[in-house]
C-alpha cells in the first residue's frame, strides 16, 4: 500500500486551499490575510458577522457533509459490491425527504427552525430500519446485498410517492421550501448544528476507516473474506448502520445533495486504485473539498441570489467523472 500518506497529504492541502478561498469570497470579500484578525475581533462590522455566523459554519458544514457522503458512498459500494451504489441507494434520502417535507407542508418550518433537520433525521432513521427489516425478512439471517438493494429501491419508491402526495397538498410557499430543500443546500449552517453533526461524523468516520482491510477482502467475495478471518455478517451490519447514520446526519443538515457520494469514490478508484486503506480517508477529504468547491460556486455564481448546491455538484461532477472514465478507457 504505497503512497497513502503523500496522497492524503495532497488532498489535505487541496482541502485547506479550497477552504481559504471559500472563506474569502462571497457577498462580502474578506482577504485571506484578514481572516484571522476578523476572527479575533480586530475587524468589526458586517464582514465579521458574515464570517463568523454565516460563512465559517457553512464551510465547516460543507466539509462535514461532503466528507460523510463520499465516505458513505465508498462504504455502500464496498458493502453492496455494486458500482451504482451511492449514499441514497438504500432509500435514506426518501425517508429524510418525507420527514423534512412533512414538517414544511405542516407549516412548522417557519415557527420551529430545528423541526426540519429533526424531521429529516427521524425520516432517514425510519427508512434505514425499514430497509433492514425488509432485507432481513426476505433474506434470512444473512444480510444479502442483492436483497438489501431491492429493499432499498422499493422503500425509496414508496417514500417518493409519499413526497409527491405531500407536495400535491402543499401551498405555494411550503412547496417552494420543500423543492429547495430537496435540491440540497447548506444555507442552514449553524455552529450548534455543526457540533451535533460532528457527534455523528467523528466516531462514524473512525469506525469506517477501521473497516478498510475487511472491505478489501470483501471485494474478493464473502467466502474469501470469511476464510481470511473477516467477521463477514458483523462487518456488513456495522458498515450499513454506520454509513446510514452518517448519511442521515448529513441529509438532516444539508438536504439531498447528490453525486458527491457516487462520483468521488469512483474518481478516486480510477485514479488511485481500489485499496480501501487509501480510498476511505481519501474519499472523506476529496468529498469535503469537492462539496466545498461546489457550494462556493453555488454561493457566488448568481450573487446576490444563490443556487442550490446539489445543482452544482451534478453539473460539475458528471463531466469530471466522464473525463476520468474516458481517459482511463484510452489508456
Amino acid at each position: 500500500m504505497t503512497g497513502v500518506a503523500p496522497r492524503l497529504g495532497t488532498l489535505l492541502v487541496l482541502l485547506t486551499g479550497t477552504a481559504l478561498v471559500s472563506v474569502s469570497i462571497g457577498a462580502a470579500r474578506i482577504p485571506v490575510l484578514e481572516i484571522i484578525p476578523a476572527l479575533l475581533g480586530q475587524i468589526e462590522g458586517t464582514s465579521r458577522s458574515i464570517l463568523v455566523h454565516l460563512r465559517l459554519p457553512r464551510v465547516v458544514l460543507a466539509i462535514g457533509v461532503g466528507g460523510a457522503l463520499a465516505l458513505a458512498g465508498t462504504t455502500f459500494q464496498a458493502l453492496l459490491r455494486n458500482p451504482l451504489a451511492e449514499p441514497y441507494v438504500l432509500g435514506i434520502s426518501g425517508g429524510a425527504a418525507v420527514g423534512a417535507v412533512g414538517v414544511l407542508v405542516a407549516g412548522l418550518g417557519a415557527r420551529l427552525p430545528w423541526a426540519v433537520p429533526l424531521g429529516a433525521f427521524v425520516g432517514a432513521l425510519l427508512a434505514m430500519f425499514l430497509v433492514l427489516r425488509v432485507a432481513r425478512a426476505a433474506g434470512g439471517s444473512r444480510l444479502d446485498s442483492r436483497v438489501l438493494i431491492l429493499a432499498g429501491v422499493v422503500v425509496g419508491a414508496f417514500f417518493n410517492a409519499v413526497i409527491l402526495l405531500l407536495l400535491s397538498i402543499a401551498d405555494v410557499e411550503s412547496f417552494r421550501s420543500a423543492i429547495f430543500w430537496m435540491m440540497g443546500n447548506l444555507s442552514g449552517a449553524t455552529w450548534s448544528g455543526n457540533a451535533l453533526l460532528a457527534l455523528y461524523i467523528l466516531p462514524g468516520t473512525a469506525l469506517l476507516l477501521a473497516l478498510a482491510r475487511p472491505f478489501d477482502l470483501l471485494a474478493r467475495g464473502e467466502d474469501v473474506a470469511f476464510h481470511l478471518g473477516v467477521r463477514v455478517e458483523r462487518t456488513k451490519l456495522l458498515a450499513y448502520v454506520v454509513a446510514s447514520l452518517l448519511v442521515a446526519a448529513a441529509v438532516a443538515f444539508a438536504g439531498v445533495i447528490g453525486f458527491v457520494g457516487l462520483i468521488v469514490p469512483h474518481a478516486l478508484r480510477l485514479l488511485w486504485g481500489p485499496g480501501h486503506r487509501l480510498l476511505l480517508p481519501a474519499s472523506f477529504l476529496a468529498g469535503a473539498a469537492f462539496l466545498l468547491m461546489a457550494d462556493t460556486v453555488a454561493r457566488v455564481v448568481i450573487a446576490p441570489a444563490e443556487l442550490p448546491t446539489g445543482v452544482i455538484t451534478a453539473l460539475a461532477g458528471v463531466p469530471l467523472f466522464v473525463f476520468l472514465l474516458v481517459r482511463r478507457g484510452v489508456q
Binding site: 459490491r81 471485494a219 474478493r220 467475495g221 467466502d223 474469501v224 476464510h227 478508484r269 486504485g273 481500489p274
Partner: peptide, 11 residues
C-alpha cells in the same frame, strides 16, 4: 482455504 473461484471486480 482456496475456494473454487472468486470474484475479481477490481485490478
Amino acid at each position: 482455504v482456496v475456494p473454487q473461484s472468486e470474484p475479481s471486480p477490481f485490478p
